[in-house]
Design a protein around this nucleic acid. Structure first.
Length: 271
DNA sequence: ATGGCACGCATGGCGTGA
């Protein structure tokens, strides 16, 4: 099984790159963030013509998430259901091949003295409650997406220069780690301890990819039953080197067969 | 790396991203 994530920075602008990547890598599920398109204009037909299922929720210009799958997904739901802002264009979840998948576009935060930063911290707290209420660390569960945190110094170039950046500030790192305490393991770091690799490269930095100046802010996180099955997790820099790239690139994790064959009874999230 | 890019928009400069 393969699970992948990609912040597209406009799915319409990135359609050729996404369709090429899907055809080459054939993931079971690809979570996309920042589709930047309202649902009526989402290029659904292009995915379906290529044989993919796609579930999406977006808005004009901003945000937007999607799940692209080889098989029809089960139990697709958008947004929080906790009485706060649903943010349906930042959170989509489903069950794919017996694995629960939560795909998020966490708010970036703008600046640590901005209201959106407080909202970002609340977002992690809401995620923690959502996982605690609807899932178990004993079930195969993946939390994927643009999570907008470099969690350790090796996850951003020149970390000392970014201590007040909303994607590296200690309060946000702590809030992210609080969600991870539910039982998530960072699969890229599991397979590449100590490696300084990034998933985002600012357009404004010349030759950022070849100079390796960027951020690792996209993640594939897994609960123990799923993490134990992971055999690889890679950042694919090739799409970031193409013409008209996103500023992020793809990450993909591969999993071996589960022990036993059938999912645990609690593998479907409860309401 | 942060003046420098790219996105979408009832566009012709602006808000946003990270």
């Amino acid at each position: 099984m393969k699970i992948a994530t990609f912040n597209a920075n406009s799915i319409r602008s990135r359609l050729p790159i996404v369709l090429d990547w899907l055809a080459t890598h054939r993931p079971d599920v690809l979570g996309i963030q920042e589709t930047k398109v309202q649902d009526a204009d989402f290029p659904r037909e292009a995915f379906e013509a290529a044989g993919w299922h796609v579930a999406f929720r977006g808005e004009k210009s901003y945000n937007g998430v999607a799940l692209v799958t080889r098989e029809p997904p089960e139990s697709v739901r958008f947004g929080f259901e906790d009485g706060g802002p649903a943010d349906e264009t930042r959170l989509v979840r489903a069950v794919v091949g017996g694995v629960a998948v939560v795909n998020t576009y966490v708010p970036q935060g703008r600046a640590i003295d901005h209201a959106m930063y407080r909202y970002k911290l609340q977002w992690y707290a809401r995620l923690k409650r959502m996982f605690a209420a609807g899932y178990s660390a004993g079930q195969p569960l993946a939390w994927i997406g643009d999570i907008n945190i470099a969690v350790a110094p090796i996850d951003v170039s020149n970390p000392a220069a970014h201590v007040n950046d909303p994607c590296y500030h200690s309060a946000a790192r702590d809030a992210f780690l609080e969600v991870c305490a539910f039982g998530f393991e960072d699969l890229f770091r599991k397979h590449h301890p100590g490696e300084e690799s990034y998933s985002f490269f600012d357009y404004r930095v010349p030759n950022a990819v070849t100079r390796n100046i960027g951020w690792r802010i996209d993640y594939i996180l897994a609960t123990p039953p799923l993490a134990q099955r992971s055999v690889a997790c890679e950042i694919d820099l090739e799409p970031r080197m193409r013409e008209k790239p996103s500023d992020h690139t793809f990450m993909v994790a591969e999993f071996g067969k589960q022990n036993g064959a059938r999912p645990a009874p609690d593998s479907v999230p409860s309401r």
